[in-house]
Design a protein around this nucleic acid. Structure first.
Lengths: 144, 144
DNA sequence: TATAAATAGGATAAGTTTATCCGAATTAAA
DNA sequence: TTTAATTCGGATAAACTTATCCTATTTATA
């Protein structure tokens, strides 16, 4: 569904959000330990998320990654996914046709539409806040 | 969503079905031309589908790939996808957790459930027959 | 039985994603 | 101003997916 990079990105953002609530910045290393990912690769993904302005970074000593507290509820899964995997999940044809639309559909075009639309809704309606709260409350987990 | 191999596999099966209705066997080369795929790679995928008993092959002169006419309505997309991509699309965790279930869910577990279940339904309810008819009637396309 | 037309399958190459490493740039604090 | 803790970014390697090529095997027909 998502690339590994995107999976790491989502989990990283959740962990960053949790810490940002407490005014703490976190390093790629801490993040990687918490989400069970390779830390150098995770760092690359974080860089990309910063470039796409999904999260913020502060360089130098006492720096790290963070999100501004009052943004957490407005950051949606869709933004993270789009920043890392692009929009192929929204626009790409299920069977890989270059051109696939109502006028020239692939064989599964209509059937895919339903699934894709539901996925899209889900991604656009799910905020980082919601996911972070699930972790904090212990009702969901970032690793194992 | 699906691997390239799986996309080719699905399209190939549809084309084979269309021809099997007319009692014709088809070669990897014909298939590849029709679905716009690399023919040697396509041949490998066809071999896998034969091994998994989704389609049949007949070796030697006048051979080729086919599906038995009265199976076409019973072959579902789910079988093809499972034969090529395995069942990660059904069972894998959306965020890549090794262990992810009701008792130990990832942050998006519940939200994914809906999407995945709809996808599963779709794949299990869509037959090769249905897709082949859409191509024959010109209301859907395998390439371009 | 010889031939030609097929699929089967191994070896290998090319391309993409995932992962690692290291040095440069930045910055807070001593 | 020096130091130490950081992110940034380029180079490279490893692993996986996609793609190609060549030979062996099978089989209907002449």
């Amino acid at each position: 569904m998502f690339s590994k990079a995107c999976e790491y990105g989502i989990k990283a953002c959740i962990f960053i959000a949790i810490n940002s609530y407490e005014g703490k910045r976190v390093s790629p290393k801490e993040i990687a330990e918490e989400i069970n990912s390779p830390h150098a690769f995770t760092a690359k993904i974080l860089q990309a998320l910063v470039r796409q302005r999904v999260i913020d970074s502060v360089k130098g000593a006492y720096g790290g990654f963070e999100v501004s507290k009052n943004e957490i509820q407005h950051i949606k899964l869709a933004q993270i996914v789009k920043a890392i995997d692009g929009d192929r999940i929204y626009n790409g044809c299920g069977l890989g046709l270059e051109k696939c639309d109502e006028k020239h559909p692939c064989p599964v075009h209509d059937k895919f539409k339903g699934v894709r639309d539901e996925l899209k809704q889900m991604l656009e309606n799910t905020s980082l806040e919601e996911l972070a709260l699930n972790i904090k409350s212990g009702s969901a987990f970032l690793k194992l």
